[in-house]
Design a binder for these strands. Structure first.
Lengths: 187, 187
DNA sequence: TATAGTACCGGAGTGCCACTCCGTTACGAC
DNA sequence: GTCGTAACGGAGTGGCACTCCGGTACTATA
């Protein structure tokens, strides 16, 4: 599946590109970071960047993918935790923090989750499955309404992350999550 | 404040530009519509478009502003309705539908609401005030939790509208609004 | 360890975008 | 009618994601 092993310079350049992109994404956000800047920072020509990653989303997926996989793994860990903890809420918080970490990524997520294809698509589906699993667990403990689906949960989490990206204060997200979980009506 | 009356050709071109932009925004969405295309459709040079509207957001504000004002007005109307109706929920639905109507507008809204300046800013502040007023009304009738603020309500509505823009089915919004209003927990 | 074959590289180039500048046109005050 | 100037048209700019191709350098083979 992975085909022939790549040439040594190709491997080296790929590593440099990922390193440069990670740094730039952290500094200025995914949507602001220009592909040419990433290439220059990696000490590599633009053409090289585009050969390694066919479009910007592919590069983004490479950078962000690992921590996305981490979210699916976190769900499995949490399912083994003691009963008392509200693991659904904890996991959604982690998801939102993850999206916020890379500014400008919420849009890519939403699109990838919807279509399910592209380099991000598969990972987003895995995250959605994790959500469904956590939801089943939470429902059994009366911590979530029974008609709520995994994709709805993801959609709301993504939406909260997006609006938090837009509005300056970064602690808004937790408050909004509280509102979404408990509802806008009085209890 | 409005200065000298404009020349006749200037007034005519401005009207044509607004007409063309409205049509194109409706057809392809605000973010996809290119300024040059709007100018060509209006039968006007690009320079003319840019003199009338200093940037794309100014044009957007002009097109979208009227229905935004309509939302503030709608709030006042609703406050006179009979007690039985859930006017907060109705108004938020209208807000979300309004944002969805022009694809790609949620981002501009979120930014304008946050900063409060720019041509959209003032109108967004008015909408936020309307939300605060409706919230006061709803709180008195136990239809909203007491610690919910107008800006939080707007943020959540904008977030739902945005995620609905991203995910294809346009009827998602009402379902997500239901979830947000009632909460993800069992009642 | 020289050489050939080719995987890979560098960077100029493309098309589209929002946005600017300036020489020219035509409106309307007199 | 004529003149000052508001307003116009459109070529131009810089930055973006993305492409193409002539040249470079890695590695399999001897």
């Amino acid at each position: 599946m992975t085909g022939h092993p790549r040439r040594s310079d190709a491997r080296r350049n790929r590593a440099r590109l990922i390193e440069a992109a990670t740094a730039l994404f952290d500094e200025v956000g995914v949507d602001t970071a220009a592909m040419n800047d990433i290439a220059r920072r990696a000490g590599v020509g633009p053409g090289t960047l585009w050969r390694h990653f066919p479009d910007k989303e592919a590069l983004t997926a490479e950078i962000v993918g690992q921590s996305l996989d981490g979210l699916a793994a976190l769900a499995i860990e949490l399912l083994d935790e003691p009963e008392s903890r509200d693991i659904l809420r904890e996991w959604v918080s982690a998801l939102v923090r993850h999206i916020i970490r890379y500014r400008g990524i919420a849009t890519s997520y939403a699109r990838a989750t919807r279509t399910g294809d592209g380099p991000l698509g598969a990972r987003c589906l895995a995250v959605e499955q994790a959500a469904t699993e956590l939801l089943r667990h939470a429902r059994a403990r009366s911590q979530a309404r029974t008609d709520l689906t995994g994709s709805e949960l993801i959609e709301l989490a993504t939406a909260v992350a997006w609006v938090n990206e837009m509005t300056a204060p970064p602690d808004t997200a937790e408050r909004l999550l509280d509102l979404v979980f408990e509802g806008l009506r009085p209890r």
